[in-house]
Amino acid sequence: MTGTDAEGSLDADTRIVRNDRFVFGVIDGEAVIIDTDGGKYLNVNRTGTRILDLIAEPVRFGDLCGALTTRYAIDREACERDVRSFLLDLSGRGIVALDPQIEA
């Protein structure tokens, strides 16, 4: 299966793309995400900021985790678990789309 399932898991081919409705900025090394429609904002730590940098263009989940495990020397399984949780949270807020149909 490609994409997300009922439990919210992502497979390696799931494509991640940021929603243009949100403005992304960095203050003191940490991202701030602003919803231009709703006026809400979200602060993201440095690791989350790196993930947002890596998904500035559509990217596959497997490629994203590969880049992060190389950069941070983290166990692949732990990386996938943590990044999956972060992306599902962002997806739930509408900040990213998790879609097998978006070209990466």
Rank of each mutant, 00 (worst) to 15 (best):
G94E: 08
A104S: 12
V26W: 10
A97S: 14
P100C: 11
V26S: 07
P58Y: 09
D11S: 07
T70K: 13
S91R: 02
G29R: 14
D28N: 14
D53Y: 07
A104I: 05
G39K: 11
D5S: 03
E103Q: 12
P58R: 08
L64F: 05
I95G: 02
R21D: 11
L52F: 08
T2Q: 14
R21E: 15
R60Q: 10
D82C: 09
D11M: 04
M1P: 04
V44I: 15
G66P: 01
R76Y: 09
L90W: 06
R76S: 10
I102V: 15
G25N: 15
A73R: 12
I74Y: 09
T36F: 11
D35K: 06
N43M: 08
R50W: 09
P58F: 07
D20G: 11
R71F: 07
V32Y: 07
V17C: 10
L64K: 01
I33F: 09
I51S: 05
G8K: 12
L87M: 04
A78M: 12
E30G: 04
D35N: 14
G39T: 05
I74K: 10
P100S: 13
R46K: 08
D37T: 05
R71G: 00
D13N: 10
G62S: 01
D11I: 06
D35M: 12
S9W: 14
R15N: 08
Y41F: 15
T69I: 11
A67Q: 04
V17E: 12
L54C: 02
I34G: 01
N43P: 02
E57M: 13
T2R: 13
I51T: 01
G62N: 04
V26A: 06
G8S: 07
I33V: 15
D37R: 10
A97D: 13
A97I: 08
C79Y: 01
E7C: 05
A6F: 13
T2N: 14
L10P: 00
V96F: 05
D28G: 06
A12H: 06
